[in-house]
Computed example of a mutant assay.
Amino acid sequence: MVEVAEYGVESFDSRLRREAMAWLTVRTNDGEEWLTREDIQDFTLGGEKRRLQATQTGIWKPKDLSAALSIQTVYRAPGRERPYNDEVGSDGLLRYAWRGDDPDHPDNRALRSAMEQQVPLIWFFGVGMGPAVFQPVFPVYLLWEEPDQKQFVIDPNVGRGIVNRESPIEEHLRQYLMVETKRRLHQPVFRSTVLRAYRSKCAVCALAHKELLDAAHIVPDAAEQGIASIVNGMALCKIHHAAFDAHILGIRPDLVVEVRDDILAEVDGPMLTYGIQARHGQRLMELPANRREYPSRNLLEHAYQSFLSA
């Protein structure tokens, strides 16, 4: 039975998008978890399996929809380029590249239709390979097209209604867009990328309870060196994350933990003794399997110098 929406009968298109996003909300624990490609194939609608994601391309439009349902960005380890770029423009808005050079390619027409109809899309952002792992980000919308650059302007439900192609984006609005885009897209993608690489274990103590772990930035993302990349991240439990940020403990470029001298001399309870002081001089207990995803030595050195000067 087709459900009745506020202003009439809900279309199949609207129902599919709504139920897919509701299902993804549950399956990702409200965006806290990543999904494998196989996980994503579990979605059903009305008892029938429905595909939500392209397998060979970046854009997926089911045959019975008039517009694209989802887009994806594949994961590439640091140092390896993606086959196409999805970048942030100087205005703080994201771009999603056409498929190929032909504006009339069916995939590009499917995105154009989604833009014209202003329907919500799902963005499957790759956070790991072997198996392919994705962080779903939704809803996202296409604001306008930039044919000269062969791309669409994409918005994670931040700028709709407050920006348009004809009006220049003022600085205060640009800053707002960049902050909100980071919160809604980059932060969940960064978290999933880091925790997946560290097998959901704290790098310092190997605690394996994901709900007690953070994706910690080695250099704060607000700093000039604070790049949004896995090489600027480590999985840390909440205690060791707070201790790292407070310069209670530091991590040398050779991946050895140091604890501040005054903290080593302090006498307190078992948490300090076993949780902090006992880690002094110990090598990190958990690191990514792929050496390309190891913490950057340059960024560790930068953070370590801050620790020494604290």
Rank of each mutant, 00 (worst) to 15 (best):
A289V: 05
D13K: 08
Y198W: 12
K61L: 07
L45A: 07
P220Y: 05
G130T: 09
S90M: 10
N232T: 03
E33W: 13
S309A: 14
E266D: 08
R196G: 08
D107N: 09
H302Q: 11
A243M: 01
V158I: 14
C237W: 08
R292M: 05
P188C: 05
G31Y: 08
H217S: 04
S306G: 10
A215Y: 07
V259P: 01
R291I: 12
Q72A: 08
V259S: 02
W98Y: 15
H105V: 03
M271I: 10
G269P: 00
S167G: 02
M1I: 08
K63S: 13
R82F: 00
G130K: 15
Q151M: 10
F138M: 11
R109T: 12
K49E: 06
Y84R: 02
L65F: 05
E19A: 09
D268M: 06
V74W: 00
V257N: 08
P106R: 09
D214Q: 13
F12H: 09
L236Y: 12
H209I: 11
A54Q: 05
E38Q: 05
N85G: 03
G58F: 02
F152W: 15
D148G: 06
T181Q: 01
Q175T: 09
H209N: 06
V88E: 15
L93C: 04
V163S: 12
L195Q: 06
P295R: 14
M1K: 10
D102L: 05
G100Y: 02
N157C: 10
L287V: 10
P83K: 01
Q149F: 08
D155Q: 07
G126R: 04
D13R: 04
I40T: 05
H240Q: 01
F307G: 03
Y96D: 01
V137A: 09
D268P: 00
N157G: 04
E81Y: 15
T193R: 07
P253G: 14
Y176F: 14
V127P: 01
L195C: 03
F12Q: 03
L299K: 01
D42I: 03
T25I: 01
F134H: 09
P168V: 12
G100I: 11
R160T: 02
M129W: 12
V74C: 10
R82H: 07
L16Y: 08
